[in-house]
Design a binder for these strands. Sequence first.
DNA 1: TGTATTTTCCAAATCATCTTTTGAATTCAA
DNA 2: TTGAATTCAAAAGATGATTTGGAAAATACA
Lengths: 247, 247
Amino acid sequence: MPPAKVPPSKKKAAPKTYRAHRDRQRHRILEAARLLFCQRGIDRVSMAEITAATGLQPSTIYQYFSNKDDIVWAILTELFASGAERIQHRIDSAPNGLARITALLEFMAEELSTHAENVRFMAQFDAIYAHDWPAERLLTLESQINPQGFRVFRKWIREGIADGSLRPDLDPGLTMHAVLNAAIGAQRRLASLGDKIEVEYGQPVDKLFRETIRILLLGLRAPQPTNRRKAAHPPATRPRTSKRRTA
Amino acid sequence: MPPAKVPPSKKKAAPKTYRAHRDRQRHRILEAARLLFCQRGIDRVSMAEITAATGLQPSTIYQYFSNKDDIVWAILTELFASGAERIQHRIDSAPNGLARITALLEFMAEELSTHAENVRFMAQFDAIYAHDWPAERLLTLESQINPQGFRVFRKWIREGIADGSLRPDLDPGLTMHAVLNAAIGAQRRLASLGDKIEVEYGQPVDKLFRETIRILLLGLRAPQPTNRRKAAHPPATRPRTSKRRTA
DNA sequence: TGTATTTTCCAAATCATCTTTTGAATTCAA
DNA sequence: TTGAATTCAAAAGATGATTTGGAAAATACA
């Protein structure tokens, strides 16, 4: 494919101010980079390729980002921000602890179905970058989802135990993070392997992930009295994740 | 650090045959590469670095491997082979389906504790390579663990359902792979993030993973009659994974 | 409107690094 | 000693990241 340079006249229609134009350019670069990163892998993409994909010159890119890590960081920040935004109201509107956990996991399932490439980007980040970057930088990202980081989730577990929907023998902090890490790990692995999964496991990706959620929640849920409805608050404890068999 | 060349006289003691020497060299190269890959990330390591680490010249390495992918593949093959060897007898000696599953997960926990770097290598492979490599190549690897691939695991679930240790409503193929993928994903994520986990989650890595196993198995296990011992075969159904609180 | 100033952009070059090859020298077995 | 296998030093050729200096465009201001 020829380099497909943008003819110099066909810029953007109306750059009212320098500032607005700069924001648009920055966004354009990030979009091109994100696409390439998701397609070919973060470490496989060179500055020259990003350059070519945007139609800009290398030197121009350096006016916006000082190196590739900067770009990776910016993309990650945007992904977290947009994710946080989309999930926030769901969690807020969930009635209790178990429902909030369920809502979070369900959101992850949808992300996997609808934005698998972004999830794959995250997987690459975890595997390649996370180990080397300072912990504070990572915490900065998480604080976008919630100012207190993941610590809130512990509260959900406590709530769930209190209202009888979760097993009483759970250690709130430990359990929540174990479950979260398992869900995230499963989600990102599925995204990374992509359609190889169907060859390897013989199951469609999203079906597998929803089953994972189901098992995890089964493990969390308080044991129900065998076939006798004795519990006082059952309606909220039934998560609506088990679309298995229909999808 | 200076290149640390090996003085040409101090070769290996007794290169009896060309063949033996060649095997030793090959192994030496793989060891050096594996170390570098685990430390700095597969895509961050150059041939030149492997060269320097082995004390050989670039041209010599090319007599053994035709490119970096070849080295990656060889390391992966060795890791799978050694893993398969170490786990095989455990699985074989497990009395029933649930025990076999437990043994497998327990093995993964130990790998995470004792060979975290290797797990991290696998994580990188999943995130970077697996997506691009042909599926048959990946299946070749798995067949080292078991000639039938992961399909055997389905049988374990069936066994577990039959002997009453697992929930009767599980879909054997779906469930098993969902659980496996979750465990592998969790394990590799923990290995990738390493000590960042303690900052992020406030829990030591192996404790988190063992809790993950516990939750997953709780989700699989058949619901016990509430507080009344009615089940005929409970001893095998109690996994010995919950060392939490002691470690 | 027209000119000065600021900002953005490009073409090309620089400097670093990496992969792979070449041909000669060395080591080993017989 | 001979021939095969192995290694090395050096270089070729490619690709990479980043910088430089000036041209072009957008804005500000008279």
